Structure formats: C-alpha cells, structure tokens
Lab assay of single mutants.
Amino acid sequence: DWEDIVRFLRKLFELGEEVVIGDWHNHHREEIKRLIEWLEKHF
C-alpha cells in the first residue's frame, strides 16, 4: 500500500530531522524529500 510507504518515509524523514542519521541522512535527505513529494503527487 503506497500510503503506508509514504507514511513510513515521512516518519523516517521526520525522525531524521531530530536525530541526524550521520552522513547517510544528510546525503539522502533531499532525495527522500523529493521522493515523498513525488509520491504525494501521484498517489
């Protein structure tokens, strides 16, 4: 279910905002944000 995936990604992203998950999070933050925005537009 796409909504569950979007919710999971958003939760992960919000957690990442508070607890910076090292370089991985910083590197992928923009991609995650773009992916969430893309999914919201399409689903």
Rank of each mutant, 00 (worst) to 15 (best):
D1S: 13
D1E: 11
D1V: 14
D1M: 13
W2N: 01
W2I: 03
W2Q: 01
W2D: 01
W2F: 08
E3L: 12
E3T: 11
E3W: 14
D4W: 15
D4C: 09
I5F: 13
I5G: 01
I5A: 01
I5P: 00
V6N: 03
V6A: 04
V6F: 15
R7S: 07
R7Q: 08
F8R: 06
F8N: 06
F8P: 00
F8E: 06
L9A: 01
L9F: 04
L9E: 00
L9T: 00
R10D: 14
R10I: 13
K11A: 12
K11D: 09
K11Y: 15
K11E: 12
L12R: 00
L12N: 00
L12D: 00
F13V: 04
F13Y: 09
F13W: 13
F13E: 01
F13K: 02
F13R: 02
E14S: 05
E14R: 05
E14H: 05
E14L: 05
E14V: 03
E14G: 10
L15H: 03
L15T: 04
G16A: 15
G16T: 12
E17H: 12
E17Y: 15
E17A: 15
E17I: 15
E17R: 14
E17W: 15
E17S: 10
E18P: 06
E18V: 12
E18Q: 14
V19Q: 10
V19Y: 03
V19G: 12
V20F: 13
V20Q: 07
V20W: 10
V20C: 02
V20Y: 08
I21K: 15
I21M: 10
I21N: 12
G22Y: 01
G22C: 11
G22N: 08
G22V: 03
D23V: 03
D23Q: 04
W24F: 09
W24E: 06
W24H: 07
W24L: 12
W24Y: 06
W24D: 07
W24I: 10
W24A: 08
H25G: 14
H25V: 12
H25K: 05
H25A: 10
H25I: 15
N26T: 10
N26Q: 11
N26S: 11
N26P: 13
N26I: 06
N26A: 13
N26M: 07
H27S: 09
H27F: 14
H27E: 05
H27A: 11
H27W: 13
H28S: 06
H28M: 15
H28P: 06
H28I: 15
H28Y: 14
H28C: 03
H28F: 15
R29I: 12
R29N: 10
R29C: 08
R29M: 08
R29V: 09
R29P: 05
E30Q: 08
E30Y: 02
E30L: 09
E31A: 13
E31G: 12
E31M: 14
I32T: 01
I32E: 00
I32G: 01
I32D: 00
I32R: 01
K33N: 05
K33D: 05
K33W: 11
K33H: 06
R34L: 14
R34K: 13
R34H: 10
R34V: 10
R34S: 10
L35F: 14
L35V: 06
I36K: 02
I36T: 03
I36D: 01
I36V: 09
I36Y: 05
E37T: 07
W38S: 05
W38N: 02
W38R: 05
L39E: 00
E40N: 12
E40A: 13
K41E: 05
K41I: 09
H42Q: 07
H42W: 15
F43C: 13
F43E: 02
